[in-house]
Structures are given as C-alpha cells and as structure tokens.
Design a protein around this nucleic acid. Structure first.
Lengths: 164, 164
DNA sequence: CAGTATAGCTTCCTTGAAGAAAGTATGAGT
DNA sequence: ACTCATACTTTCTTCAAGGAAGCTATACTG
C-alpha cells in the first residue's frame, strides 16, 4: 500500500495486515462493498471520501487482491463496480468486532441506536463477530444482516464477487 | 483523535471505532502494551515509530481511554510506563484476527515463520481470534501466548492495567 | 559536586498524503 | 447537437508523518 512505510516484508503478520488494512477507508470500503454498494459514486457519496483518495484506494485494493471489478447492468448499458474477493469477505469478523467494540467503548451520539448483528441462519442476534454467540456457527457474509435503527433498515450482506 | 475528519459522532459503530483505532500505530501500540512493553523507549525502538508521533499517539490514547500510566521501579527510582485499559484489552480479538488474516492473505517474507496463537488454558493453538478453536472458551490476554518463530520466543500477554 | 548517562518527551523542518473542487472522458437519452 | 450521469484525474492548499536535534529530570561516576 505504501501509504507510509512499507510493512509488507515484516515478519509479524499483524504488521503485514496493517500494511494493507491500516487505513480507515480500506475497511469502510470493504464494509460497503460487502453490502453491495460497490459503485464509485455510491462509495464517494456514502462514505464522504474525496474522489481522489477513493480512486487511489480502489486501485491499491485491486492490487492487494481485496477487490475485483464486476459488470453490472444499468438499463441498456453495462457498467462496472467493485466487488469483494474472498480475502475481503474474510475481513467480516474484524468489521463485526470493530462494530461490537465501538458499541461498547464509544459514546452513541444523539439519535443513534444499537446496531444489531443478525445471524440469518439461526435468526438471532450475535454478540460475537467470528462465531454466532447464539448457535456457534462460523459467521460468513451471506448469512448476516446488520440492523441499523438510525436508517430503519436491515441490510443483508453478500460474499465474495457477488454481482452488484 | 482528529487525525483526519472527526468520526466520533457517527451513528455507525464501525466508524466510531475507526475514529480511535483507524491508525496503524494505535493497534501496534496496544499489541506491545499487552505484551508488557509499555515504556516510551521500548515502544519507540520496538515499533520504529518516530518519537514525535509516538508522543502524540500516546496522549490521544490516554484521552481515548485505551491506556493508563502506571508506575514501575527501575532500580531505586520510580518511572512510568503505559498499560492497557479494559477497552484496550478487549481489542485482543481484533489483533488476533488481524494476525490470522495476515497469515492467510499476505506473503510470508524469507526467514519468517508461522506465528501461533497459544491458548495457555487448554494448551492448544487456536485458529480463531475470539473464542478458542480448540476448547471454545473466550480468549482473554492473560490466557494467551504468541509463538514467534522468527524471534524464537513465546511471548505471554497480560490484561488490563497490569504492572509492567 | 561537575560530568555523563538514560528515560521521556518536545520542537523544528521537510516531504508527502488528505480534502475540496474543478476538469476530462465516455456513452445515453431527447 | 445538447445535456446528463458515471467514473475518474488533476490541481491546489492544508495538515500530519518521519527524522533529527534539543530539552528536562533524575540518577551514577570519579
């Protein structure tokens, strides 16, 4: 990624991960892409990221193997969007634990609400990020929905390289 | 933290988490502090972070409630070091999943080796970051050691606010 | 008790990335 | 032909990172 020092050759796997993931936008882009919001403008508007930075991040994430480009049809024409690879889909536990940690250790602003992680396979909310705290199964994107009360939506996730 | 935009008032808990954690140094500092390496110079040398940035990060992490200052005795005199709070200790699953993800999705450099996460309570390696893949227990720092073949050490971790 | 060492920061300077906004390119609809 | 939408790219300014040197407090050394 070379945003700062190059950590891709470090022995410590955490440092190698942070070489790719150690930028807040990268995880937010993965989150949105796993929600099926993989178009450039959706990301730009939805995340509030500048277009220049978004462009650079998407390029780096393609190179890092986190994203692939997929076609989608916009009426008569074919456009392209970004979709998650298997590597990006396997960041789900990290995203969910960030959500759980944030719920517990940061202050909920006025008008917010508790975001529930719903394991659709068993129908229950999970309080772990990696395995379901209700049924014990490993959590994967296809089986998850995130209930966001401040948007009054229950967004389902999708796995690697699904069509947008 | 205000490194970039202020995300502390966002409804999305992931964004609020990244407001605090969305800097690679923060997680690396938490990792080292959980290993009992909480002195300024240990962090400076061990992480290769510049002193100016380390100083700013430590300050921000104190304010964010990730670290506390604790006394330690250096022979006759009392010095201070940084120790993890409960909030920082609860980042363990994220650190371990970053390690697992890095082992799987980034290239191991020459001379490296597989870092094993050992759950000392049951004596086995765990392949999950949050609950032990061998015995199913929730993983907490006091019960973990990380086996780092490139340093030929098995470093045990420590929980919140333990003396350095 | 002056000189040196060490820990723990702080200040200064330069380079580089972030953010905002405007510009470019391509194809569609009217 | 003109306008609109998507998907970027370019330009400019501001701010943070990294490196090095300086500063302060408390030892230990002769």
């Amino acid at each position: 990624m070379a945003l700062r020092s190059d950590w891709s050759k470090e022995f410590c796997p955490i440092r190698r991960s942070l070489d790719v993931l150690g930028d807040p936008w990268v995880l937010l882009i993965v989150r949105d892409v796993l929600h099926g919001r993989g178009r450039f403008d959706e990301l730009h508007i939805g995340l509030g990221i500048s277009e220049a930075v978004l462009s650079r991040r998407l390029q780096a994430m393609l190179e890092a193997g986190l994203l692939t480009k997929v076609d989608y049809s916009d009426g008569p024409r074919t456009r392209q969007a970004y979709a998650a690879t298997e590597a990006a889909a396997e960041l789900l536990p990290i995203l969910q634990q960030l959500a759980l940690w944030g719920e517990k250790h940061t202050a909920l602003p006025d008008g917010g609400g508790h975001m529930a992680l719903i394991h659709e396979s068993c129908g229950n909310e999970t309080f772990h990020g990696e395995t379901c705290s209700s049924c014990g199964e490993i959590l994967s994107p296809e089986d998850m929905s995130w209930d966001k009360p401040w948007k009054s939506t229950r967004d389902s996730l999708q796995g690697a390289s699904a069509q947008g």
